[in-house]
């Protein structure tokens, strides 16, 4: 038996050990992308979340014009950081509909008074039912929905200033 063949089992063991070690050391939490991209928005009909914005249903998205669906909550800290960039998107002509997760009307009103209100409509999703329907696993998340009501893009996490042009581009693509 040649000498390199002698080392083969040991090399296999090292490879296996390395695989397991890298699995243990790499961060275990991962972002879960929605599998609903490219599919129509599931039917839903949410009650209004605040008094000065109308309620939100799936039918509000199939109006011919692409829109943003923003999952947010008053208890969500990154949502505060995201607020000015959502406003920038609204200023650039984007229609943003909000889905407020597990939130009280007075808390949402206070949140919007403090951080601005870029939303056209806001639905109250107190059981996360719409969030689960569209495959969103956290707050905040933003979906691009085309004029036929089909989800075309998902942004996970808060929108940064650098994400604004990309989202505007995705809205343009969804035309």
């Amino acid at each position: 038996m040649t000498s390199w063949k002698l080392w083969l089992p040991f090399a296999l063991f090292l490879a296996f050990f390395g695989l397991v070690a890298s699995g243990l050391l790499s961060p275990s939490d991962q972002t879960i992308e929605s599998k609903m991209i490219g599919k129509p928005l599931p039917a839903f009909d949410l009650p209004p979340a605040v008094t000065d914005r109308p309620a939100l249903s799936a039918a509000d998205f199939a109006t011919g014009e692409p829109k943003l669906l923003n999952i947010f909550a008053s208890w969500c800290v990154p949502c505060i950081a995201e607020a000015p960039h959502l406003q920038a998107l609204a200023d650039a002509g984007a229609t943003i509909n909000g889905v407020a997760i597990r939130d009280k009307p007075e808390d949402i009103a206070a949140f919007l008074a403090r951080n601005g209100n870029p939303y056209t409509k806001i639905g109250a999703d107190n059981l996360s039912s719409v969030q689960l329907e569209i495959g969103s696993s956290g707050v905040p998340e933003t979906f691009v929905v085309d004029g036929k009501g089909v989800i075309t893009y998902q942004h996970i996490g808060d929108i940064r200033a650098s994400d604004v042009p990309l989202l505007l581009e995705k809205l343009e693509e969804a035309q």
């Binding site: 879960i32 929605s34 599998k35 609903m36 495959g135």
Partner: peptide
């Protein structure tokens, strides 16, 4: 129903 939304991962 959940796998359709989140993948096998869920």
């Amino acid at each position: 129903w959940l796998v359709e939304r989140y993948g096998d991962w869920v």
